[in-house]
Amino acid sequence: MATILCYGDSLTWGRIPNGGRYPKHLRWPALLNGLLGSQHQVINFGLPGRTTLWNDPFLEGRNGLAYLQAALETFGPVDILILMLGTNDLKRHFHVGAFEAAKGVEKLIEKSRMPDSHDFPHPSLVVIAPPNILSPTGVMAESFDGAVEKSQHFHQHYQDIAVHNHCIFLNAAGVLQPSEADGVHLDTKANEQLAQAVYMLIKDTIKS
């Protein structure tokens, strides 16, 4: 049995565009588990507002780097770690772009490969470049002011980081786009598309 840990933000957690949370069976990690089979365990450890490594002054506990080691120990040993973070890094109060988000992901990669007190083997890594942000609406509009153009560069910088660090790479923008309802979060179809894309990437590396 393989343990796959999905470490992400609200796109992994299952945020419904413009509010609420999808039932478990509609979130992409659960859909991925269904594709892989019940003999494997896919853990959804998404958290709305989570960043790669920035401390959000408005939301407590959202620094992804600060909590990754604890997550790996809590659910370990983890066979595959899926990282999809960076969308929240583009909120205007952080004043950073896709390059800095990718460098944050690189720090997460490094953290996942550090020795731990349990001698767990290091997980295989899947780095997902988040989908491009569309025109944010409602409460998203102010937070993500200027983020649309920045998000166009996720693919380039994340791929560079993934290749350099020998990670499996997926460009989410190549298989889906956010809901037009708020320009940031995923509709049910996009959750299905993401689960299928990840499944195709990892199915041959997982033992039945």
Rank of each mutant, 00 (worst) to 15 (best):
F120E: 03
A147Y: 02
I202P: 03
P29A: 15
G8I: 08
G146Q: 11
A141R: 11
S124A: 11
H122W: 01
Q196K: 13
R27F: 08
L125K: 05
S135R: 10
P57A: 13
G104K: 00
I161W: 05
N171D: 15
I82H: 02
L11P: 01
C6F: 05
V198N: 06
K189N: 14
D160I: 13
L108M: 04
D182G: 14
V78I: 15
T3V: 14
G19Y: 04
P121I: 06
D145A: 14
A70I: 04
A147D: 02
Y199T: 03
V105L: 07
S38M: 09
A181F: 03
L65P: 01
S38E: 15
C167L: 08
S117P: 00
T52D: 08
A71I: 03
R27T: 15
C167M: 08
V198M: 12
S117G: 02
N171Q: 00
L72V: 07
I161S: 08
S135C: 03
L134S: 07
Q159L: 10
A98H: 00
P121D: 04
D79V: 12
L31M: 15
S38D: 14
S151R: 07
A181D: 13
I168K: 05
V139T: 05
H95W: 01
T87C: 09
G97Y: 03
S143G: 05
R15G: 01
M114F: 00
K150T: 07
L201R: 11
D187V: 14
D182E: 08
L108E: 02
P115N: 12
P57V: 08
P77L: 12
A141W: 00
G20H: 06
S112T: 04
A197P: 01
L65D: 03
D9Y: 01
H153M: 10
H164I: 08
G64Q: 04
L32G: 02
